[in-house]
Design a protein around this nucleic acid. Structure first.
Length: 506
RNA sequence: CGGAGUGUAGCGCAGUCUGGUAGCGCACCUGGUUUGGGACCAGGGGGUCGAAGGUUCGAGUCCUUUCACUCCGACCA
């Protein structure tokens, strides 16, 4: 591709609402463009190219693992969501609208219902199982507060996969296979990541694991053990129970729990004064959809006491139970090896769930087993935020000048700069390298613009193609420079050798 | 949803207090000079000043209503 023909509106100026490196450089580098509405972005040619490359890696690994790609309708009849019971539970994040006949529709934020509907119509026998179907498609979530560019948009590209099994054991096998497959994907993309235990949230189900791209700018706090493999989202993290004695000071926190159909209930949580309440654990302990703050109340009817206080406290309530509701703190002891746990920050880029029959049962997704008996399929579900991965790659790979794309995500293999377009020798060498490498399948960008050296090198730094060739005034002495974007390393070499050097490299 | 703020050219902003010809920087177009770190000179194009209503001889500016967006918080696979 010739730079003079490419639509890449790079910019010197930082958008005023951007604070994260990925947001700043994706816009300044001309990869994406804000639509003006919050959390909505257009992908410009370079951004689209990267998105396609990341998507191709995801698809390649999934296909190798035996998954099959489909594309489900983006617009979903609301009746399907009524069947599963999530129409209410998902709340305002769900974008709803009516058609001309006044039928209710939603734009899918995730597609369990749609996929189950597809499978229940076409799969009837254990002989057709197991099955793992996925799509890489737009999702829409009406986020309360979209921010950070592609990190938390309202419309985004997600890979969502769903597996269907005749037994719990087979689903566990697939879950492990997907964990391995995801590790391969993240590794190929050049990401530093950690697989952690997680809460299942609105999706539901039993075991779930998150794939966290490690970055200080991440929105999630994760607890990791330096001595073993253990890692968990703070929402699901557990530590070795601490022991308390009868003198331990106890605090009681009042919260309002929200349930389906607008029901609410005042609940109380008791735990040692020095320990923070972990909201998600607390929410799960009372089986609520959500917990919100409310005024303190001393009329205690429902009380959940932190499990560590069992046998120590002398609290009374009509309905009293024990559960782990405490937030793990740094230096708590690892549940597996006793190591001192630490906090780190991560970007949730993948999440895999063991769903069981949570959707197949209410939606009637049944099959006939060997005995001719109709039973619900056992399911797993697996997601990757594909557009979020772009942001994650930049969060991990940038410097103060711009992006540094990894090999499998780079918009081009090589970026050739002709410093002075009026110098015929420079142009001739640039064209020769460009045409020769292009014919050999190397994806080359040739900066043939009528610009000075400054803007050209700035754009190279900003756009972040991993390697570059600089053909400039040193050509008069028969020399050119080979540049490695990571570290901005320049190596001089003779203009005679450069072509064979590049042919060997790509 | 609570708190704070902003809407003026593609982007970033001034002008609003004190009403009187719509401005600046970047970007863009033409010509010339320049060509290794976001050049210079000259000329040029681009706006229903977020929307609606009101006050006034006259509104970007004052009043009322409304919409949108941003930031902090709460919330969130």
């Amino acid at each position: 591709m010739r730079f003079s023909r490419l639509l890449v509106p790079t910019s010197k100026e930082t958008p005023n609402d951007a604070t994260l490196a990925s947001h700043i450089y994706l816009i300044r580098g001309g990869f994406i463009q804000s639509v003006g509405g919050s959390g909505l972005y257009n992908f410009l040619p370079l951004g689209k190219k990267i998105l396609d490359k990341v998507r191709a890696v995801v698809k390649d690994e999934l296909d190798k693992a035996g998954c099959q790609e489909v594309a489900l309708s983006f617009v979903t009849p609301a009746t399907l969501w009524e069947e599963s019971g999530r129409l209410e539970k998902y709340g305002k994040e769900l974008l709803r609208f009516k058609d001309r006949k006044n039928n209710d529709f939603i734009l899918g934020p995730t597609h369990e219902e749609m996929m189950v509907n597809l499978v229940r119509q076409s799969v009837k026998s254990y002989k057709q199982l197991p099955l793992n179907l996925y799509q890489i498609n737009l999702k829409f979530r009406d986020e309360i507060r979209p921010r950070f560019g592609l990190m938390r948009g309202r419309e985004f590209l997600m890979k969502d996969g769903y597996s269907f099994h005749a037994s719990e054991e087979d689903m566990h096998r697939e879950f492990a296979l997907m964990e391995e497959t995801y590790k391969k994907i993240f590794t190929r993309l050049g990401l530093e990541f950690r697989v952690v235990e997680a809460d299942s949230g609105a999706i539901g189900g039993s075991g779930s694991k998150e794939f966290m791209v490690l970055a200080d700018s991440g929105e999630d706090t994760i607890v990791v053990c330096p001595d073993c493999e253990y890692g968990a989202n703070i929402e699901a993290a557990v530590a070795k129970p601490k022991s308390y004695d009868a003198d331990t000071e106890i605090k009681i926190i009042t919260m309002k729990a929200l349930y389906d159909e607008g029901e609410t209930k005042i609940v109380h949580f008791a735990l040692p004064v020095s320990i923070e309440l972990q909201d998600v654990k607390a929410c799960n302990a009372v089986n609520a959809n959500d917990l919100v703050e409310c005024e303190e109340s001393t009329d205690i009817q429902t009380l959940v006491v932190d499990a560590a206080l069992e046998g120590i406290d002398s609290l009374n309530a009509q309905e009293k139970s024990y559960a782990d509701i405490s937030a793990v703190q740094e230096n708590d002891a690892c549940i597996h090896c006793g190591g001192a746990l630490t906090y780190t920050k991560g970007i949730e880029a993948g999440h895999i769930f063991q769903l069981g029959t949570q959707y197949s049962e209410p939606l009637g997704c049944n099959f006939l087993d060997e005995n001719g008996k109709s039973v619900p399929m056992v399911m797993g579900t697996y997601g990757i935020g594909v557009s979020r991965l772009l942001a994650g790659i930049i969060e991990q790979n940038h410097d103060d000048k711009g992006c540094i794309w990894t090999k499998e995500s780079a918009p081009f293999d090589l970026h050739i700069i002709i410093s002075n377009i009026k110098d015929e020798a420079q142009v001739a060498l640039g064209e020769k390298l460009y045409e020769t490498l292009k014919s050999k399948g190397v994806d080359v960008l040739l900066d043939d613009r009528k610009e000075r050296f400054g803007p050209k090198i700035k754009d190279f730094e900003l756009m972040g193609v991993p390697y570059g060739v600089l053909i400039g005034k040193k050509l008069a002495d028969g020399m050119v420079e080979f540049m490695t974007r990571d570290g901005m390393i320049k190596e001089e070499m003779s203009s005679e050798e450069i072509l064979s050097f590049l042919e060997g490299k790509f």
